[in-house]
Design a binder for these strands. Structure first.
Length: 113
DNA sequence: GGTGTGACCAGCT
DNA sequence: AAGCTGGCCACAC
C-alpha cells in the first residue's frame, strides 16, 4: 500500500513545485519546511536538479532562494530561460533577482495547508 | 554501509 | 558591511 510516507522526498518536491500557481514563486526553505524539516533546503535544490528526469515539466523556475535570487538559472539549459519564464508570468527580474519577490511569494504551508 | 554531493541558510570573522 | 565557513538532511555510487 502506498501512503504519503512511501513517496520519496523528490516526489514531494515535484508535487509541491507543480502546485505553485502561475505568477507566484516560493523558496527552497519554504518547500523544505513544508514537506520535511527546515534545514533540508539543499535537498530541495538537489531534487529539482534531477527534475529533468521526469516526463512532466516541473516549474522549477518558480523556486528561488530566500533572497529571491535565481540561483539555479544555470540548470535550465540556457541562463536566460528562468528569467524569461518568470518575467512572462509577471515577475520583475533584475540582476537575476526577483524585485517583487515578497508580493509573489507563495507559502505552501498557508496556501496548500 | 560509508562517502560525497547538492539550485540553501544562518552565523561568525 | 561583506565574505566565508559550517551545518543540515536525503539520495546516488
Amino acid at each position: 500500500m502506498k501512503n504519503e510516507k512511501d513517496i520519496s522526498f523528490f516526489e514531494k518536491v515535484y508535487i509541491v513545485a507543480r502546485k505553485i500557481p502561475r505568477g507566484r514563486v516560493t523558496s527552497y526553505g519554504a518547500i523544505a519546511a513544508f514537506i520535511a524539516a527546515p534545514g533540508s533546503a539543499r535537498m530541495v535544490g538537489w531534487a529539482l536538479n534531477n527534475c529533468h528526469s521526469l516526463d512532466k515539466f516541473v516549474p522549477a523556475h518558480r523556486v528561488v532562494n530566500r533572497n529571491g535570487m535565481l540561483t539555479g538559472k544555470h540548470h535550465f539549459g540556457n541562463t536566460g530561460t528562468m528569467k524569461q519564464l518568470l518575467e512572462n508570468e509577471g515577475a520583475i527580474i533584475e540582476n537575476d533577482r526577483i524585485i517583487n519577490f515578497r508580493e509573489l511569494f507563495w507559502n505552501p504551508s498557508t496556501e496548500l495547508s
